[in-house]
């Protein structure tokens, strides 16, 4: 990574009639000759599915999922198999969509949250779904045969709006971050009961303002969180211990990346190749990588790229493409999605 890199804009995708909140790549695409596909969701109450047309390499809207959610769709997530798409909406429901031929059909609606659902996430095996929202609760749903969903647990612990839920990439451990400035870690006790096993807050070097998003590195032993306090924080755990019978190995603060952002950091995503990308309220996209020349004790990270004016307004979501691609999608308040490719500078 000693090269210089640039983000080349491949295409600007227009179609949403309001701000675009989030993008999610279909994990079953972009590999083995299957053209890459992703979904975007918006304040216009719709979800759009985009796919790259192999012949022209252009990105086209394949489907518009509308007339189901009655308010903003805040977040969406594909099941690991890529067959189902879950959509979290301010209308208090979570929609489950199935890809049928060229179309998408709403096959289930999860109701339970009192009001706005803010985020949705599938676990690694696709057997569990988590949702969270403004009612301060985190819900865990089990996926039953026949696309039925059963509520496995309703978790209360956050004292404010829960912004995002995210499952660990390999283990059934759930993470949630909130307007109460904390990240909570939830695990099952073996008897179908879920509990908060750890809270990362200001008392253990956590954030001093809203935590907006989190993401894991490829191996799942590190996590990055981003916040309204203008910083990103890197957390680490002992994965071997975590996977052994000893049970839970706590996460601890490794380092804080400050001084890079002067507005809220809304989105963060860690690529399998170790690149951390952020989207922020200053309309810019930034890339970070672990720097090897730091001290021996703790990892340090450096910024390798800053794309000013990536969008005309706030960058709400940044997501790396699936597989080995160097594709990046970003979504913004300006109503557009942009597809970028990371390239070494010639």
């Amino acid at each position: 990574m000693e090269l210089d890199w640039e983000l080349r804009e491949l295409q600007t995708l227009e179609g949403h009639k309001d701000r675009v909140w989030s993008v999610a790549w279909n994990p079953a695409t972009g590999v083995a000759g299957i053209p890459p596909m992703f979904a975007s969701c918006s304040g216009d109450k719709t979800v759009r599915v985009w796919e790259q047309t192999p012949s022209s390499s252009s990105w086209d809207c394949k489907a518009v999922l509308d007339e189901t959610h009655t308010r903003t769709v805040r977040s969406c997530a594909w099941s690991p198999s890529g067959k189902l798409l879950a959509t979290a909406s301010f209308d208090a429901t979570t929609g489950i969509w199935e890809n049928v031929g060229d179309d998408f059909e709403c096959v289930s609606t999860l109701e339970g949250h009192e009001n706005e659902v803010k985020s949705v996430s599938w676990n690694a095996s696709g057997s569990l779904l988590a949702t969270c929202g403004r009612d301060k609760s985190v819900w865990i749903w089990e996926v039953l045969p026949g696309k039925e969903f059963e509520c496995a647990s309703v978790l209360q612990g956050h004292t404010q709006d829960v912004k995002m839920v995210m499952w660990h990439p390999t283990m059934d451990i759930l993470f949630s971050c909130s307007y109460d400035n904390s990240v909570k870690v939830w695990a099952e006790d073996g008897d179908d009961d879920w509990h908060c096993v750890q809270t990362l807050n200001e008392a253990n070097n956590g954030h001093s303002s809203t935590v907006w998003a989190l993401s894991f590195n490829g191996s799942g032993d590190k996590m990055v969180t981003c916040s309204d306090d203008l910083t990103m924080k890197i957390w680490g755990t002992d994965l071997k211990k975590m996977m052994s019978e000893d049970g839970y190995a706590p996460w601890s603060h490794l380092c804080t990346l400050s001084g890079y952002h002067d507005r809220t950091v809304f989105s963060v995503h860690w690529s399998r190749k170790g690149l951390i990308v952020t989207g922020a309220a200053d309309d810019a996209i930034r890339l970070f990588v672990e720097s090897k020349d730091g001290s021996v004790d703790e990892p340090s990270y450096k910024m390798i790229l800053r794309k000013e004016k990536a969008h005309d307004m706030d960058v709400n979501s940044v997501q790396w493409g699936p597989g080995e691609t160097r594709l990046l999608a970003s979504a913004s308040d300006d109503g557009t999605i942009k597809i970028w490719e990371l390239q070494p500078v010639a």
Binding site: L110, E111, G112, S137, W139, E150, C151, A152, S153, V154, L155, Q156
Partner: peptide
């Protein structure tokens, strides 16, 4: 608190 959470979970599961 526990009663309210369990109640919500049951209602959601029963639809």
């Amino acid at each position: 608190g526990d009663l309210r959470l369990k109640f919500k979970a049951i209602c959601a599961s029963l639809g």
